[in-house]
Structures are given as C-alpha cells and as structure tokens.
C-alpha cells in the first residue's frame, strides 16, 4: 500500500530557507519498518536525504528520530503499527540535540554527559588471579542499564533537558547507575555524592516518565535515577535541597495529614514545583524504610489518624 512520509529537512549549507518539510510517497507492506521506508526514499527517490542507520535490528542505536512528535528507534517501528487513517507520518530529528543535517543530530552533548559520570569501573583492588567473584544476580541486575544502546531517544523527550541543559539526563544517569550498582566498583560513595551534589544531578529529574516510555530497550532511566536517590540518602547525602524536600514533605504530611506547601517551599530553598515535590514522597518513605515498602501516601487526607498510623508502621519497620 502507499504511505506518505513528511520529513523535516535541514541543510546548513543553503544560504537561506534552509529548513523545510518535504513529503514523499512510497509503497510498503505490513513488515516495512520506518527505517526501511526511509532507506527506500534515500535509495530510490532522493539521495540527499541524510540519516544515520547501521544494524537495522535495534542494537546499534543509530536511528533515533521523532515520529509524530515522539522519539523512537525507527528500525524497530513498523509503519503500519503507528499509521492512523493513512495520514502522513511526520518525521523529525531527535529533540534536545543540535542538528547537523536533516535527521542527523550532533551527539557531542550526549557523550559529554556520559563522560561526566566517570563511565568505567574503578575497583579498589583487583583479584590476584582470575575474575572478580560476584553473584550472577548482581550481574543480571546490571543488564537493565547495560541494555542501553546510547540512542539518545530518552534525551530527546526528557522534559527537564528541554529547559535546563545542565541536567545530566536520563541516559548518562542510567549509565552512572550501572557503576553505582556494580559490586566490583570501589567508588560507590564518591559517585553518589557527586550525583547528589552536582547541579543537574539526580535531584533534577521531575519524574515525568517520558524516558521510561520512549526507551526502546527497557532501561527505564527514571527508575534508575530513583534508585540512586534512595542509595544517596542511605549513604548519608542529606544536605541537598532534594533531600530536604523529601524530609520536609515527610514531616508535613506526618504532622498535618496533608502537604503544607508554604512550609515546603521554605524548607527546600526556593523550589516550588509542586508536582516535583509530590514525586519525592515515595522516596522519603522508602529512604526511611531502607528497604522495600510500596509508597503509601493517600491522595486525600481525610483521616489524619490513619496517616499517623501509617507513619508509625513504617517507622517501626525501620527499626
């Protein structure tokens, strides 16, 4: 069947009008991926169309793009699976990246953020012979982050990066998590302190979930960030506005059965983003528990006593 692809073009070498949308029509079948379609356009219709691709099999991370406003790996997306009423698909380069040409973006900032998290293991000491001894469980745990193919899809759609490019961002933080969690690494505390204290570190995520939704490899960067917040608090990093939020939130709910917004704003050094604060609640609970208990904050605080009860239980559990 015939479909239309509407592609955002950019050519820095043109003196003017160097940005435009261009529509292409091509024939596809039910297994044609968006990447197949783009390659077909490039091969048969317009060789000037620039894009990156290599493996075709969702493993090399080259072909992240925005399709109808959402970042994806186009090799992994069949055209039919997102086609609506045969309307043209809008294809643009990844967001939050500067554009080199057409669908090709610069990854300089992406990789400079990876550099920022000391992305290699730094063991305290090495075994005299043979490998490090580690449980299979601890290694399999790291697979989540090792699955990251550095495609930049999460970075494209991260809502914080959109407004603050100092944020280390989902991909690099997921990479950081891999070393924080690696039992062979000797710098866990230093890593956590850095990620905790750093402007743009773990406390700058708003938990918008975008990265979890768009990541094609199940890395779930936000979950990794939340785990690091927990670890950071557990290892005593309590002097950040992020932690103070959490604590203030915790105390506020405990005392009043509801959130005292004024109090909070004061406590946490001028940060007033309420959705962001709400996000911190479960972490406060979890940190308190140092273990696992599902977040228990009710939406409405009609029963103050009940809430006190919850707190009591949590605090008992902590002992």
């Amino acid at each position: 069947m015939e479909v239309k692809l509407n592609i955002k073009r950019f050519d820095p070498e043109l003196p003017s009008d160097n940005e435009w949308w261009q529509e292409y029509s091509i024939q596809i079948n039910s297994n044609t991926t968006i990447l197949d379609a783009l390659i077909k356009i490039r091969d048969e219709i317009d060789g000037t169309l620039a894009l990156r691709c290599a493996c075709r099999a969702s493993i090399c991370g080259s072909c992240g793009m925005r399709v109808n406003g959402r970042a994806r790996l186009v090799c992994k997306t069949r055209v039919e699976s997102i086609l609506k009423n045969n309307e043209p698909l809008n294809i643009e380069p990844l967001g939050n990246h500067s554009i080199i040409r057409d669908l090709v973006v610069s990854l300089d900032s992406f990789f400079s953020k990876i550099d920022q998290v000391t992305p290699y293991i730094v063991p305290d000491s090495e075994p005299e012979t043979g490998e490090f001894i580690a449980s299979n469980e601890s290694m399999e745990n790291l697979l989540t982050s090792m699955n990251c193919i550095m495609c930049g899809v999460c970075v494209s759609d991260c809502t914080v990066l959109e407004v603050d490019n100092k944020f280390i961002g989902p991909a690099a933080l997921a990479k950081a998590w891999r070393f924080v969690e690696d039992p062979r690494d000797g710098k866990k505390e230093e890593r956590l302190r850095y990620l905790n204290d750093q402007d743009g570190g773990i406390w700058d995520c708003t938990r918008c979930m975008q990265c979890v939704e768009v990541c094609p490899k199940g890395v779930a960067p936000m979950d990794r960030i939340m785990e690091m917040r927990e670890s950071a608090i557990e290892s005593g990093n309590k002097s950040t506005s992020g932690y103070k939020h959490t604590e203030s939130f915790y105390n506020s709910v405990k005392k009043h059965g509801r959130l005292d917004e004024t109090r909070l704003a004061v406590d946490s050094a001028g940060i007033t983003n309420i959705p962001r604060l709400l996000d911190l609640a479960p972490i406060g609970m979890k940190a308190l528990l140092k273990g696992k208990l599902p977040p228990l904050i009710p939406h409405k605080a009609e029963d103050k006593e009940k809430i006190k009860d919850i707190y009591k239980k949590v605090e008992e559990k902590k002992q």
Binding site: E131, I133, S135
Partner: peptide, 20 residues
Amino acid sequence: VIELERMGVIFSRGDDGKLG
C-alpha cells in the same frame, strides 16, 4: 576473557560467582 571481565564486562556467573 578474564581481562575483559576485569575491565568491567558483566559476564553471566555460575553459583560460585565465577564466570558461567
């Protein structure tokens, strides 16, 4: 292979914690 492990490759392990 041992060298790769020491560089940080997260090879699967056996019950003894060695490479599987």
